[in-house]
């Protein structure tokens, strides 16, 4: 079957290095106050709706507005630029790295990327889901949203122009959205993971296997 993968290999690979690094940058310019240290454990957002912010990483004050930047991931601070403490920092400056240990669900996500049909970014551009799809996804988190060839699915914002992208892959259910609305995505990066109905069983089998075989 097309798209079949060597699950054992993949699992072995993740077992030897079950980490992913998240580099936290300054969202904009400002004076920086570090709030964490090298080696410190940090938490991601929590609460049923993710309403409780994670660990405070740093405060960035610009135009007398001290903005708190919280960790989006749980992990260990593996690198931190202490030289930036109390300095004026430019926008998009890497401040620290959170080494995050992948949990079971994330492993599943990553392996699924190899199983699902991936709709990749045709251009380096900013992407948005079309409002209808976005609303449907928000409503049917459990069931998923079905799409077929020719459906308008994404808005690609490029050169000040918005282009509506039509889906051109196998029909299926949107299993996963890999980007945040309005995020700039590099060409070729995954935007959507779509699962064709015929493959659904296989995907579930893969998920099931990882669930049983992956020990945290």
């Amino acid at each position: 079957m097309a798209g079949d993968i060597n699950l054992n290999d993949l699992l072995r690979r993740y077992r030897t290095h079950p980490f992913e690094d998240y580099v936290v940058e300054t969202p904009h310019t400002g004076r920086l106050q570090l709030k964490v240290e090298q080696g410190q454990e940090v938490k991601g957002p929590s609460g049923k709706w993710g309403q409780k912010p994670g660990t405070l990483l740093f405060v960035l004050e610009r135009e007398r507005n001290p903005k708190k930047v919280y960790s989006r991931n749980t992990g260990i601070i593996s690198e931190v630029r202490t030289d930036l403490h109390e300095a004026f920092v430019e926008a998009r400056e890497p401040v620290l790295t959170v080494q995050h240990r992948l949990n079971k669900e994330e492993i599943i996500d990553r392996i699924l990327k190899e199983v699902l049909s991936i709709y990749a970014a045709p251009q380096r551009a900013r992407y948005f889901l079309v409002p209808e799809i976005a609303a449907q996804i928000e409503k049917n988190i459990e069931k998923g949203v079905s799409i077929k060839k020719g459906d308008e699915i994404l808005i690609m914002s490029l050169m000040k122009r918005d282009t509506i992208l039509e889906y051109d892959g196998e029909p299926g259910v949107i299993y996963k959205v890999y980007f945040q609305s309005g995020q700039t995505v590099e060409q070729g990066q995954s935007l959507l993971g779509v699962c064709p109905p015929a493959k659904l069983q296989y995907v579930q089998k893969v998920v099931q296997r990882i669930r049983t075989e992956w020990d945290e």
Partner: peptide, 19 residues
């Protein structure tokens, strides 16, 4: 007051800090 504030929806809608 000469300062800016962040809109509570900034993350969702990309609102800029407001003077």
């Amino acid at each position: 007051e000469d300062r800016t504030v962040t809109c509570p929806n900034a993350e969702k809608y990309g609102c800029q800090d407001l003077w």
